[in-house]
Design a protein around this nucleic acid. Structure first.
Length: 488
RNA sequence: GGCGGUAUGGUCUAGCCCGGUUAGGACGCCGGCCUCUCACGCCGGUAGCAGGGGUUCAAAUCCCCUUACCGCUACCA
């Protein structure tokens, strides 16, 4: 049960995947609610029928659940609350605070263009404001549809205290009589948002800074309806690396995409919390409860932030290494299972073993899977640069042969036994240990980087190891034909 | 164009309200240590107050102007 009367909402429109900017807004609402032991509500603003879809609604809910941003109420759908908006509009019509407008979009468009050409701002002329009841009746009988506009006193001053941006002031004359109900009977955003926030008892409206300029209009609606005005807190926008508004072309910016790349919700939440907010001058890593405990809207920054995936990558790596290991292992397995690998037939202990090797070497599960491919695949893919660097060198074939001999004679394929055997071999051959390890690594993994060689050998197993060394040697002989640099 | 907003390294930011710090932290990058490679970890380094005027003994901090960027300017949200 909530211990305060604070109520906030996250109100996305289901017209696209939930991207990190929206998630940050959801997160700040959620943190504020939890910090104050208030109520967090989800409301889908789906009055734009043409662009809204159930699929996106589903995605939004899934994303919030996955991130652990649990809601206390909702989801509410504006499309199911149309009667409420109609009532509000009719109240305004009756009280004379609003009027029907029969101007056509074409007509208005023409006006807009004319004014724009003169370098003036478009403000509705107020043409339909003075229509007599008879005229209105007449127009309606002709079947002409009307929109509804709010009657705005051009001299009215609107001032409000934004928790983040401070005092904002504007005069109503800057925007004129604006539409609150479209001719199809659906409310516009500025009406619906006010009616809903009031009906839901929202005390703090926390939303993107792109709504800052709309707020004065909404305040006018609050006043006209006689509603109490809530507190506002606008959040700075999140931009792509090119400093434009985040969008698809900036790569993975939706939560689901991040999930598909194997990012952890803990890391995403922590990272996003720090985009536009900082509790002090040094803290970076904060648990969910610490975030809740320390969060404050008053510390939110006013300037737009660039979404920098490299820092998220770092933070995700940090969480990979510091969350309970078994937890990470379980999630990795879950991730692998959805990535096309038939891991069900892998031995569970073995699978956990190889994952453990990569936990501190991977920044997300996608990278982990990439690093683990040589364990999972039967065939090794040899990276050209790795081959050039460690395989096409003098005496490599000889060394690989010696390694194969040594390993095949080995009964015990555990790490300590492998280490003893291989270090012994290096000593016998009178070469540095690295001269054995590097070619061997490339031979069995196809790459220059891998977990410790003894771990790799152990988990790959004797049979597969020897097979791969054999393969690498044949591979060497073949490439030796084409360029005669190799000495046997 | 009009209106609103923002401006600390490449990026996220602390400091600004209540002027005096070698302008702090993190990511990245560079170098070193560790070492079988990579990663981790540790150590060190790089780089910033958008520009210009004031006010003041003293300005990232207060005031003004300029510039840049963002948002709104829909019968979208």
């Amino acid at each position: 049960m909530p211990k305060s009367n604070i109520r906030v909402r996250f109100a996305p429109s289901p017209t696209g995947a939930l991207h990190v900017g929206s998630v940050r807004t959801a997160l700040f609402n959620w943190l504020f609610a939890r910090h104050n032991q208030g109520v967090f509500i989800l409301r889908l603003e789906d009055t734009d029928v043409a662009r809204s879809s159930q699929e996106f609604t589903r995605q939004i809910i899934d994303s919030l659940n996955w991130l652990g941003l649990d809601t206390d109420e909702g989801p509410y759908f504006q499309s199911q609350r149309l009667e409420l908006y109609r009532q509000a509009v009719s109240q305004l019509l009756i009280s004379g605070r609003a009027y029907k407008c029969f101007c056509t979009p074409e007509e208005l468009d023409a006006q807009r263009q004319r004014l724009r050409a003169e370098g003036k701002a478009f403000i509705y002329s107020g043409k339909c404001r003075s229509l007599s009841p008879e005229q209105i009746k007449d127009l309606e009988q002709k079947g002409i549809k009307s929109a509804v506009r709010l009657k705005v006193d051009p001299d009215e001053m609107i001032t409000f205290e934004d928790i983040v941006f401070g005092t904002i002031q504007m005069t109503a004359g800057k925007f004129g009589d604006f539409i609150i109900q479209r001719s199809d009977g659906l409310p516009t955003y500025n009406l619906a948002v006010v009616v809903d926030d009031h009906a839901m008892g929202i005390t703090h409206v926390i939303r993107g800074d792109d709504h800052l300029s709309n707020t004065p209009k909404q305040i006018l609606v609050y006043r006209a309806l006689g509603y109490e005005i809530p507190q506002f807190a606008h959040l700075p926008l999140i931009l792509g690396p090119d400093r434009t508004r985040l969008s698809k072309r900036h790569g993975a910016t939706s939560v689901l995409e991040l999930k598909d790349q194997g990012f952890l919700p803990e890391a995403i939440v922590n990272f996003l919390a720090l985009l536009g907010w900082a509790p002090d001058e040094t803290t970076q890593i904060m648990s969910r409860s610490e975030l809740i405990r320390r969060f404050s809207l008053k510390q939110v920054s006013r300037s737009a932030a660039v979404f920098d995936i490299t820092k998220l990558l770092w933070m995700n790596g940090y969480y990979m290494r510091n969350l309970p290991q078994q937890e990470i292992i379980n999630r990795a397995i879950e991730f692998f299972a959805t990535s096309g690998y038939d891991i069900a037939r892998c031995d569970r202990t073995w699978l956990e073993g190889i994952i453990r090797l990569e936990i501190e070497r991977s920044k997300n599960f996608a990278e982990m899977l990439e690093h683990l491919r040589f364990f999972l695949d039967e065939e090794v893919r040899y990276e050209q640069s790795a081959v050039d660097k460690h395989l096409k060198k003098e005496n490599v074939d000889l060394r690989l042969r010696k390694v194969a001999e040594t390993l095949s004679a080995l009964e015990d394929f555990t790490q300590p036994a492998l280490e003893k055997a291989l270090r012994g071999l290096a000593e016998n051959l009178g070469v540095k240990f690295g001269h054995i390890v590097h070619p061997l690594r490339v031979a069995i993994t196809g790459r220059t980087a891998s977990p410790g060689i003894f771990d790799v050998l152990h988990f790959l197993g004797k049979e597969r190891t020897l097979k791969r060394i054999q393969f690498a040697r044949q591979f060497l002989i073949k490439s030796d034909d084409s360029n005669a640099e190799m000495t046997p």
